[in-house]
Amino acid sequence: MINFRYSRAGDVADAVRQIASEPRAKFVAGGTNLLDLMKYEVERPGHLIDISRLPLTGIEETASGRVRIGALVPNSDLAYHPLIEERYPMLSSAIRAGASQQLRNMASTGGNLLQRTRCSYFYDVATPCNKREPGSGCSAIDGHNRMHAILGTSEACIATHPSDMCVALAALEANVNVAGPAGERVIAFADFHRLPGDTPQRDTNLEPNEIITAIELPARGFAQNYTYIKIRDRLSYAFALVSVAAALELEGKNIKEARLALGGIAHKPWRDENAEAALRGQNATRDTFKRAADILLSGAKAYAHNAFKIELARRAIVRALTQAAQGTPQSQSNKKVL
């Protein structure tokens, strides 16, 4: 780990001021990802601005019936908050599917959005990686890519986004509230993370001088018909090969509204409007679910070791939509995918 300067932000405005004046500065909150990356010399910030004491830890309902989550709410507090468990159980479930209790206790809501890929080449400075060192090449494209993306990839990068929480937030159409030198702005969740394109070094559309202050959830929480399933190489504490957040609003058997987001298969939580449109207005049947899965995966592209993800994702989508439709969501403490 390299040496770095350390300061504490007094308030949000101070945090924004500090980061603007330091080109190699980074914010640190829970540090569950950043400190690891610093130890691996993947991240080499000259200055850490500690934002962990900023008063961004509230979870509250807004006048318009939305729920605002402070950026520094620990993942575990969020997952077990009564308001979230009751109105957004899919979000609660997705958080509990990720990492370990100890990590969730430390990790912040905003930090979860900003965690970086687990691509093993990104993590090893002895190998080329365009995300870590733009222009050095992608080692994964012709290397070990079993964990890598099948949708939205580019010649420069086939990494995936590792978050579980973000998959649920994408499905819920959350907003990301950010503050910067020019004031505050709101980023729709779908626009927050980026595809790699030819700038894989940029994971998100957050500007380097901006700070996440809150996540806002729309009133619609899909608390009746939802699930989050995570398929991985062991049954806990592993990153997703494929994960699916599925949420439905049903009228009898008819699907009035549908949300489908996938993790582990792209550089960002993956949603497909056409797939969701194919669910809306249809009866909740296996055939309907399969059709949606086919649409979502129609553009999927496999590499040497991850072709299985296409079929796995197809089946996981069907399973998730079935669970959601039946109102039998996956429990994250069950040692079995239902």
């Binding site: 093993s120 080449y121 090893d124 190998t127 290397g143 062991r234 806990s236 504490y237 990153f239 040692k335």
Partner: peptide, 28 residues
């Protein structure tokens, strides 16, 4: 679960950590 993954181009182990080198956890 267990496999030490080499990238033979680099002659190097690519999962040299216990997040990516999987051993069974309680749930398994």
């Amino acid at each position: 679960h267990e496999e030490t993954v080499f990238d033979h181009r680099f002659g190097r182990i690519m999962n040299a950590n216990i997040a990516e080198y999987h051993v069974p956890v309680n749930a398994d």
